[in-house]
């Protein structure tokens, strides 16, 4: 424990990078994933097809491969991403958007079809029906799976350690190399800082779930 206290500021530096990675890519993934979910239930076939291909491709690809693709394959098509924070954000957000889309889509499908029919019957367009009637009701059932997705994202940010981003895991590796004697405490420190992120996420989930609850 003493080791962790002595290196607290180093840990905190890595933690803040992990926090920023999680927050920024999480936000982008939520927005883009919701758009993809809307594509998948849209009346337009090309949009549905795009949404399906996007989700299925990314959901079934290892995250590491997405990073490798971005860093080593994209340059062959003239896209040269700078190694570092924003490359990691793009990879994490892209990958996570597929899982967000699936969670949101299942929430949309969970709303009684009569709600959409009633909305269409009073002349609302597809977008208005989704935005005013379906999504507000889907949120309730979508919050728990979305928090799971965000918790997975938090831990997935560790893949960025392999691509020149000094977040928590990379910080732990550096500390471990310099302090072999400290052994397991280095890793315990890393784990504690992940918990600092993921446990509040779980609590937040329960809060939001209660707040958006409404009688059916």
């Amino acid at each position: 424990m003493g080791f962790i206290a002595e290196n607290l500021s180093t840990y905190v530096d890595g933690f803040l990078v992990t926090l920023r990675l999680t927050a920024v890519s999480g936000l982008l993934a939520l927005v883009w994933g919701t758009v993809i979910a809307a594509f998948r239930v849209s009346p337009l076939r090309p949009l549905r097809a795009f949404g399906t291909v996007w989700t299925e491709t990314l959901r079934n690809t290892p995250l590491t491969l997405v990073f490798f693709g971005m860093v080593f394959v994209a340059p062959q098509f003239g896209i040269i991403p700078p190694l570092g924070f924003w490359t990691a954000v793009i990879c994490l957000a892209t990958y996570t958007s597929a899982f967000v889309a699936e969670a949101v889509r299942s929430g949309i499908n969970g709303v009684n079809v009569g709600q959409a029919e009633a909305a269409r019957a009073i002349g609302l367009t597809f977008g208005q029906t989704l935005g005013n009637v379906i999504l507000p009701q889907a949120i309730r059932s979508v919050i728990p799976p979305l928090i799971n997705v965000l918790i997975a994202l938090t831990k997935n940010t560790s893949v960025a350690a392999g691509f020149a981003v000094v977040e928590l895991v990379a910080t732990g590796r550096r500390l471990g190399v310099g302090n072999a004697a400290a052994g397991a405490w280095v890793l315990v420190g890393v784990a504690i800082f992940y918990l600092v992120l993921t446990i509040p996420l779980g609590i937040l989930a329960a809060r939001i779930e209660r707040r958006v609850a409404f009688a059916r």
Partner: peptide, 24 residues
């Protein structure tokens, strides 16, 4: 489909067996 259909539906009211009031 689309906006033209939405406009027409605005002129045709519908009452369902299961009410379908917006629950939220």
């Amino acid at each position: 489909e689309g906006k033209a259909l939405a406009r027409l539906r605005a002129d045709v009211g519908m009452v369902f067996q299961s009410f379908n009031l917006f629950a939220h």
